[in-house]
C-alpha cells in the first residue's frame, strides 16, 4: 500500500482532525467516543488503496458521519436490549441477535407504513435517493422536476418517517 493517494488522504485527515473530532463528539456524545472513532478512521485509512477521492476533506467528513451513524445504531440496539428486551447474553455481540432483529423490524414496519402512505411521486423520489443511491440531480432529470423540487419531496418523506416513530424513537434510546 502506501500510494500517494493514501498518504494524501492521511494528510488531509491530520489537517481536519480537530473538526472531525468535534463532529464525532457532537454525534457520539463526548470526546472519548470521538477519539475512539478517530482511531477507527485512521486504521481504515490504512486499508485504502487505489481510490482517488475528488474532495478528500468532504470524503472524510462523510466517512466520520457514517461511522457515527453506525455506532449510534449499534449503541441504540444495545441499549434497547439492555432495557429488557432479553436477559443478558454473554456472547451477544458475536451472535446475530434475534431481539435486535425484532426491534429493527418493528421500526421498519412503521417506516414502511409511513412510506406507503406517501404520495407516489414522493415515494419514488425517496426510493431513488435512499435505496438506489442516486444523486438528486439525476432524480430531478428522471422525474422532470427541479433539484429543489426533489429536495422538497425528500424532505417531506424523511419528515413522515421521522414522525411515524412517535415521541421516543422506538427502542432507539440509549444515547
Amino acid at each position: 500500500m502506501g500510494s500517494p493517494t493514501e498518504s494524501g488522504l492521511k494528510a488531509v485527515f491530520l489537517a481536519e482532525r480537530p473538526m472531525l473530532a468535534r463532529l464525532l463528539a457532537a454525534r457520539l456524545g463526548g470526546p472519548d467516543d470521538a477519539e475512539d472513532a478517530l482511531q477507527d478512521m485512521w486504521l481504515k485509512l490504512d486499508q485504502f488503496v487505489d481510490r482517488p477521492v475528488a474532495d478528500p476533506a468532504a470524503y472524510l467528513f462523510r466517512m466520520a458521519a457514517n461511522l457515527a451513524a453506525d455506532r449510534r445504531l449499534s449503541a441504540a440496539r444495545r441499549g434497547a436490549r439492555d432495557t429488557g428486551w432479553m436477559e443478558a447474553q454473554s456472547e451477544a455481540d458475536d451472535i446475530p441477535d434475534i431481539e435486535r432483529t425484532l426491534i429493527a423490524r418493528e421500526r421498519l414496519r412503521q417506516v414502511e407504513a409511513a412510506l406507503d402512505a406517501l404520495p407516489e411521486r414522493t415515494r419514488t423520489a425517496f426510493r431513488m435517493f435512499r435505496l438506489e443511491g442516486r444523486p438528486q440531480r439525476e432524480i430531478a432529470g428522471t422525474l422532470g422536476i427541479s433539484v429543489s423540487g426533489v429536495e422538497k419531496l425528500l424532505q417531506r418523506a424523511y419528515r413522515q418517517i421521522h414522525d411515524s416513530g412517535g415521541g421516543e424513537g422506538v427502542g432507539m434510546a440509549g444515547r
Binding site: 449510534r72 445504531l73 429493527a104 417506516v111 421521522h162
Partner: peptide
C-alpha cells in the same frame, strides 16, 4: 434531532 434522523436513515438500509 439529527441523531433521530440519522438513526432512522441507518435503519432504512434494511428496507
Amino acid at each position: 434531532a439529527y441523531d433521530r434522523v440519522a438513526l432512522d436513515d441507518a435503519l432504512l438500509a434494511d428496507l
